[in-house]
Amino acid sequence: MSWMQNLSNAMVLAAIYILMASGLTMVYGVLKVLHIAHAAVYTVGAFAGVLIYTWVGNFWLALFLAMVISGLLGIVIYRGTYFYMLDSPRTVPLIASIGLYVMITDLLQKDFLMGPYQRAFPAQGAGLPRIETRFFTLTPKQVLILLVAVALMALLYVVLTKTRIGLGWRGAAQDREMAASVGVNLNRVISLNFFLGSALAGAAGVLVGVYNNSVFATMGDVVSYKAFIIIVLGGMGSLPGAVLASIILAVAENFLVATVGYVLPRDAIAFLVLIVFLMYRPHGLLGKE
């Protein structure tokens, strides 16, 4: 396989990482909370996606509804837990979120929800074409992932930079008290922020479910650590940083395995990259002092 094929596969992996981590970055940016339960939202999104897809048979509708459901779950999580911990030390919401993650995952594993078995998500590439060039091939599933990731990131960029919601969000990210004192409705801003971030997690869950053709209750485990490597590497709370970090990790993992093989598991490679970068850039790639 040519290096171009490796690169295109790495870009698909990067797109998945970006979707996993961008929602988390948004939450961290405003709340400064390490939102582990984000990984549970990802699983719920995938589960909702596969259920709706099985019922109606339309992938795009399933993706949209799964994102809405995930977004609403995000708001419920915020209003039900973190809302009461805004003034507590940061370890309090962190521990709450770990508990929440374990609880939701175990609950999902019950027979009346997902059950213990993996489910297939046979949406294929949602009817998208296979792209074949001389240097690389993208399967319909890979085209789907790249397309959705780019579209959602573009949408997010517009929301954050061109709308009042985005302005409020950026204000709150810089200084919560100050933003509140100049009239930003903090609760609404944070709730919306959770909604959008969680919807992105839901989209990531659906896409990974389709990509690997499997949805299961513990699929969020990967997100629960991988996404954190990405947001630390990117510079806590920096969205462009998270995107850059996703690409670096995906390329590093892919090329190391393709050239020298599994000298280390991919996750260990990711941590290694994190440690090396942090030695030279302790605030992450695009983080601020």
Binding site: Q5, N9, D221, E253, N254, G261
Partner: peptide, 20 residues
């Protein structure tokens, strides 16, 4: 001969090596 970790989902890079 290659080893991979439990729970791996992304085999594409190693498949490239196998093909070679």
């Amino acid at each position: 001969e290659e080893k991979y970790p439990l729970g791996e989902t992304e085999f594409r890079p190693i498949i490239g090596k196998i093909k070679e």
